[in-house]
């Protein structure tokens, strides 16, 4: 009984608090964030249909370090959501997917670092050196 209460650390059949749950939480949060951003992104891009000046004015307003960091955060959300999405597909369609879901989660983390670090260097250099 006592063991069951503290099981999240020991493992067993409980998935709560471990790779399976945290990747699920992060997938939801990143997905919701990206969906909300998509509304804003379609609306600001729609300004090209108002006038070149209106669009350029808003784009200029975006070019500051705060928005630049926000953009890096959005790209981080995209990369995680994309790679973890592939992991979910593997869990669903690959016969060994459920067995290796934890290893695949760490694969997602490594892939995230490999893709995000070069992007962050490139993008933040652009943001902070103009």
């Amino acid at each position: 009984m006592a063991q069951a209460a503290t099981a999240p650390k020991g493992g067993g059949t409980l998935y709560r608090g471990r790779e399976g749950m945290w990747s699920w939480v992060a997938h939801r949060i990143s997905g919701l964030l990206l969906f909300l951003f998509l509304f804003a992104h379609v609306l600001d891009t729609a300004l090209v249909r108002v006038s070149p000046e209106a669009y350029n004015q808003v784009m200029e307003a975006y070019k500051n370090p705060v928005v630049g960091l926000g953009e890096a955060g959005l790209v981080a959300a995209v990369i995680f959501h994309a790679l973890n999405g592939l992991r979910i597909i593997a869990v669903d369609f690959w016969s060994k997917g459920p067995k290796f879901q934890k290893q695949m989660f760490w694969g997602v983390v490594i892939g995230f670092v490999v893709l995000f670090v070069p992007f962050a260097i490139r993008h933040l250099t652009n943001v902070f050196t103009h």
Partner: peptide, 23 residues
């Protein structure tokens, strides 16, 4: 995955990156 990664690469990594984005 293909569409969005392509979009981000062309718009943010190539050329001037974010600074090139205008009308």
């Amino acid at each position: 995955l293909v569409l969005v990664f392509g979009h981000l690469f062309v718009n943010l990594m190539l050329g001037e990156g974010i600074h090139a984005i205008d009308f």
